[in-house]
């Protein structure tokens, strides 16, 4: 294996941390811990973005990193903590989850993601080549998490984790999106979480629970 500059190795390290955290989230039943993991994933993302900014000499990525730190490591976890406190979900767990099966599907998805990333990363010529596969895998794992969960709060965390994956894909392959787009996405995510928070209260008002299977009644016959 050819030697890699130190910064590249660090990027790989944080990329694998992000992927590992994705699996951890996929397997975690406890909502509180899930939020911790989400914050950690955000922190890993901040680190890798900062390193990409430094090595690629992309000053605007520092702003992205700062924005991520503020939003995904501090503000959103705080909002989510407040939310589960207010909803008294702090010690709630997700039931009806077959963790080994989920993990196996997750593994298949990671292989698939790396297969997808192969042709693209051959074209991309910088230090962050193989991280694209990880980014796609993170998006897919988050999606898988949303599909398997039944609680509304975990679905929101899955949605946020998916955004993490997208952001990671953007920084690792193209040195980030244009600042305008990034700001727009950040704002969207924030507003989305706020709106979903309101929905939680409404859903609980209606069904006395945040379990989503109650919503199955809502389809048109």
């Amino acid at each position: 294996m050819p030697t890699m500059p130190l910064s590249g190795q660090y990027i790989h390290l944080f990329a694998s941390v992000v992927l590992l955290l994705s699996f951890a989230m996929l397997a975690q039943r406890r909502i509180r811990t899930l939020i911790d993991l989400f914050a950690l994933q955000g922190a890993a993302l901040v680190c890798s973005t900062t390193i990409v900014a430094w090595t690629g000499d992309q000053p605007h990525l520092y702003y992205s990193a700062a924005l991520t730190l503020l939003l995904k490591v501090i503000v959103l976890p705080l909002i989510l903590y407040r939310l589960i406190d207010r909803l008294q979900l702090r010690w709630d767990t997700e039931t009806g989850l077959h963790i080994p099966a989920t993990m196996l599907i997750g593994l298949v998805l990671v292989v698939f993601a790396f297969g997808l990333a192969q042709p693209v990363s051959r074209l991309a010529g910088h230090v962050t080549q193989s991280t694209l596969g990880i980014a796609i895998a993170v998006v897919m794992l988050a999606f898988l998490m949303m599909i398997t969960r039944r609680k509304a709060v975990t679905q929101v965390i899955g949605f946020l984790a998916m955004e993490n994956g997208l952001f990671f894909a953007a920084t690792s392959t193209t040195y980030g999106m244009p600042m305008v787009v990034e700001l727009g996405i950040a704002l969207d995510v924030l507003v989305g979480v706020l709106i979903l928070g309101i929905f939680f209260f409404q859903i609980r008002e209606q069904f006395d629970s945040l379990d989503l299977h109650h919503l199955e009644r809502l389809r048109e016959e």
Binding site: F143, M146, L212, L215, R217, L218
Partner: peptide, 28 residues
């Protein structure tokens, strides 16, 4: 078209997920 409306969020997410996978396979 209404036949595919199942009422379960997980199923809806599955629809988008499969669409995403299929599109990715086609594109790459």
């Amino acid at each position: 078209v209404g036949g595919i409306q199942q009422g379960r969020i997980a199923v809806y997410l599955l629809y988008s997920f499969l669409t995403l996978l299929v599109l990715l396979v086609i594109v790459l």
